[in-house]
Amino acid sequence: MSRKAIVSEVSAADPTSPQSIVRFEGVSMRYGRDPEVLTDISFELPQGAFYFLTGPSGSGKSTLLKLIYLAERASRGRIEIFGQDLALLRRKDRPFMRRRIGVVFQEFRLLDHLSCFDNAALAPRIAGRKPAAYRADVADLLAWVGLGDRMHAMPPALSGGEKQRLAIARAVINRPDLLLADEPTGNVDEAMGLRILRLLLELNRVGATVLIATHDKDLVVRSGKPVLHLEAGRLSPYPGQAPDLDE
């Protein structure tokens, strides 16, 4: 099968079909010969869902996200993203799946030698679009996340909250079908945390499926969104949900 065929098959999974965007079936994961970090994980994120992934530090939240954005491989079990079995995804097809996934990394992973603008413009540039076709979008998005007057700044000159918002801008510039955020409020104060939460809810409202790893219980309670809870590498249903914040 050609690459085009796979990509179009992947694309066919959305945007309106009720098919799940992420599907884990009995997934386990270990780093090298270490003991399992994740054990027998099964869950499903339907199209348009907004979920939190909670659990204490070291419970495996980041690892679970890495499995979804193809930075690590499961040791056992089956993972489907956009209906595509990752075990069958060939290396040369990975970039095209990654372009549909926006990731806000826990450690940001901004490119320090590039300006905010260049960082935020990375995804459309990599996708091969012409600068004239997306630079207005980048400027709008940076203004939207409150970095309108920092577009030319280099990341080392940014505050923690600014880096966080730049990382979010970079993750969403190409309007990903799936948005993963790893502790997106970990480096900011409460007010900024709420602002970021609203931003993520807004992205979800316009169509993105969202999964946010956090150990910030307050954030979860305020949002009233459902939770996947990890405890020592195992998934457990979280007791209770808070009332909706945004209504």
Binding site: H113, F117, D118, A121, R135, D149
Partner: peptide, 18 residues
Amino acid sequence: MNGAFDPKRWWPAPLLPL
């Protein structure tokens, strides 16, 4: 400070540091 930066005239910088 940022008066000089015009997004309309922005052009991608080299991805590999010089």
